[in-house]
C-alpha cells in the first residue's frame, strides 16, 4: 500500500511534467518568441534559441529538461543570464518560511477551535467561530490583506504593511515584516482546517462507541481525549494537506500584495515577462511540493491508524 502510494505520487509528478512541457509546446510561440516579443527575429532570435537549445526535437528537449530537473538543474532563464536553480533557491526558502509560520500558528489554533466548536455545536461559541471562519475562508486574500494593512499598518501603525527585505537576506531579517502576510495566510488556513475538524468531531461524537462510553459512565473529558479525538483528527490530516496545497494559489496573491520575495511573486513576474523556462521550473517545483505534502499526509495517516498500519506492513 505504501509502495503503491509512492508510485502513484511519482506518476502524478511525471504527468505534471509532461503537461507543463506539452502545455508550453502547444501554446503559440516558444520561450524565445515569447520573451523577445517584437524583437523576435534575425540574430537575436537565433542566439536565444541557441542558448535555450530550442533547435532540437521536442522529445530530446523534454528528456534534457526532465533529467536536469531531477538533478535540480532547471537550465537558464529566457534572457540567458542566470541559472534558474540559483534564482529559485532563496525564493523557495522564503515561501516555505511564510507557509511554515502560518502553519505553526494556524494548525494548533484550528484544531483547538475546531474541537471546541465541534463539542459545543450550535452554542454561541460555535456560531461565533464558525461564522468568522466562513468569512475568513471566503473573502479573497487580497481583500483581507488590504483591510489588514489599512487597519494595522496605516491607521494603527503597529506592523509594517510591506516587505522590503531582499530575497537573499537571512531569515531573522524578515521579522517583523513577515507578520502581516503570515496573519493573512494563517487566517485562511485556520478557517479551512477549523471547519473540517469541527465536522469531524461532530461526526465522531455521534458515533455508537462514544454513546456507549457515555452510557458506561466514562468521564466526559476522558471520552473526548481518549475515544473521540484520535478518531476525529486522523481523517483531518489528509484534508489539511489538500487544503495547504490548495492555498499555494493564495500564497501567490499574498506575496504580490505584500511585495514578499517568494516563489509566487517570482512566478507572476516570470509570467508577465513571458520567461517560460522559469515558469516551467516553478510549476514543476510547486506541483512536486503539492504531491509531496499529500504523500506525507497519506503516510502519516497510515502510520497513525492501527488498521492501515498492519495493512501497510503486510504489504497487501
Amino acid at each position: 500500500m505504501l509502495m503503491r502510494r509512492l508510485f502513484l505520487g511519482a506518476i502524478t509528478v511525471w504527468i505534471v511534467s509532461v503537461i507543463i512541457f506539452a502545455g508550453v509546446e502547444v501554446l503559440p510561440g516558444d520561450a524565445c518568441t515569447a520573451f523577445l516579443e517584437r524583437e523576435a527575429q534575425g540574430k537575436l532570435l537565433e542566439n536565444c534559441r541557441e542558448a535555450q537549445g530550442l533547435n532540437r526535437s521536442a522529445a530530446e528537449r523534454y528528456f534534457d529538461w526532465a533529467s536536469g530537473a531531477v538533478r535540480g538543474d532547471f537550465g537558464v532563464s529566457a534572457n540567458g543570464q542566470k541559472s534558474i536553480s540559483e534564482l529559485v533557491g532563496n525564493r523557495l526558502r522564503n515561501s516555505l518560511l511564510l507557509a511554515f509560520c502560518a502553519l505553526a500558528i494556524g494548525v494548533p489554533l484550528a484544531i483547538f477551535l475546531g474541537v471546541v466548536t465541534g463539542l459545543r455545536r450550535d452554542k454561541p461559541v460555535d456560531l461565533v467561530f464558525s461564522t468568522t471562519a466562513v468569512f475568513a475562508m471566503t473573502i479573497p486574500e487580497f481583500v483581507s490583506a488590504t483591510v489588514l494593512i489599512l487597519v494595522f499598518s496605516v491607521w494603527l501603525g503597529w506592523l509594517p504593511g510591506i516587505v522590503l527585505t531582499s530575497a537573499g537576506a537571512p531569515v531573522p531579517e524578515f521579522f517583523p515584516e513577515i507578520l502581516l502576510p503570515v496573519i493573512v495566510l494563517g487566517m485562511v488556513m485556520t478557517a479551512h482546517i477549523l471547519r473540517m475538524v469541527r465536522s469531524s468531531v461532530i461526526e465522531v461524537m455521534a458515533g455508537d462507541y462514544v454513546q456507549m462510553a457515555v452510557l458506561k459512565g466514562v468521564p466526559y473529558w476522558r471520552i473526548v481525549f481518549r475515544h473521540a479525538l484520535p478518531n476525529a483528527l486522523l481523517p483531518a490530516i489528509n484534508v489539511v494537506a489538500l487544503t495547504i496545497a490548495w492555498l499555494l494559489g493564495g500564497v501567490v496573491v499574498i506575496e504580490v500584495v505584500f511585495n514578499y520575495p517568494g516563489l509566487g511573486r517570482m512566478m507572476i513576474d516570470a509570467i508577465s515577462d513571458r520567461d517560460l523556462p522559469v515558469v516551467q521550473a516553478i510549476a514543476l517545483i510547486v506541483a512536486t511540493v503539492y504531491v509531496g505534502v499529500n504523500l506525507t499526509a497519506d503516510i502519516m495517516t497510515m502510520v497513525l491508524n492501527p488498521r492501515l498500519r498492519t495493512h501497510a506492513l503486510r504489504g497487501s
Binding site: L8, I11, T12, V13, I15, V16, I19, I20, G23, L27, P28, G29, A245, L248, G249, V252, V253, G264, M267, I268, I271, S272, R274, V279, I282, A283, V286, A287, Y290, V291
Partner: peptide, 22 residues
Amino acid sequence: MRVVDAFLSLPWILKMLVLIVT
C-alpha cells in the same frame, strides 16, 4: 484520474495565468 490529479497539483493561479498571458 491521474491526469485530474496532475492538474489539481498545479496552483489555479498558475494554470489560469499561462493561458491568459498567451
